[in-house]
Nucleic acid binder design. Sequence first.
DNA 1: GCATTATAGTTAGATATCTAATTATATAGT
DNA 2: ACTATATAATTAGATATCTAACTATAATGC
Lengths: 154, 154
Amino acid sequence: MNADPPVFQLFNEIGIINQLSTKIFEGALPKGMTTAQFTVLNHFVRLGIDEKSPAELASAFQITRPTMTSTLTRMARAGLVSIRADPNDGRAKLVSLTDTGREMRESCIAASAVFFPLLGSFISDAEVAEILPTLIRLRVKLDGMRDAKAVTLD
Amino acid sequence: MNADPPVFQLFNEIGIINQLSTKIFEGALPKGMTTAQFTVLNHFVRLGIDEKSPAELASAFQITRPTMTSTLTRMARAGLVSIRADPNDGRAKLVSLTDTGREMRESCIAASAVFFPLLGSFISDAEVAEILPTLIRLRVKLDGMRDAKAVTLD
DNA sequence: GCATTATAGTTAGATATCTAATTATATAGT
DNA sequence: ACTATATAATTAGATATCTAACTATAATGC
């Protein structure tokens, strides 16, 4: 009864998996924390970065600058990041983690330490290894298309 | 330099693919149309349904009732759906497509007829066939967890 | 050097999504 | 029958996300 083309099905499944896994993950995070904010915290720590501009962060996460402004405003209000003017560029700003931000990231990591084994019980390492390369190839191609001026399709 | 566990990577890639493909798809839809609204239109047509309550629709798409209320309100405002009181249940309502809704669905299908071959050029049918079963299994398991009362993880 | 163009960040306005709380109606239980 | 519980829909308030438009500063170009 499912007449959808395989590619449609694929994107459909990916959409549902994304929605469900995101919800489960956020349910495990400290109250009020979101995936978007955790991603920023994790980025600084994992890459050992001191300061980065909002534009660079937006680019790293492939979101628009207004979205980044919005998230950073909330994170600054919560004391997770600190934002100062860039002394070398009057237009730009520089974002850095606060101690509170670093502690929050630790709490999130602790939460995910419980979360990922659970997900791991839903899909084996072998299965992940089997499908991950294909998904990465697909992501890279989609990503390349994003850079094409407009997604005109004509 | 990527020390993330494979499962983390998997969900990361899935998140990015979902974001990019959704954006590309919506870019192809008629101005103002969204994936959420198209999904509702397509649901009625594909399954040949006349009327369905907001609660049933919310359940079918695995979103909350407030979200469904929100989307249906906008769709009704745009003339895409019609909503009436359920004569058999004073609490419930019944949603149905309007002619405008049906036409809009056709336009979206026409748009996707251009979109999916494009995506198809990014991933072969063979690759889709290879990874789809695993993704479906994963989705089903995540889905089952959703029904567990609370995602307590403890 | 001054005008044009590009870039950084923000603001405005929109949609989708969630949780918590509210209102109204049904159903169950005793 | 009357109370207690469950269900349908909505409202309120929040986050994330987008596009379009705006302000300010930097870089280019002639």
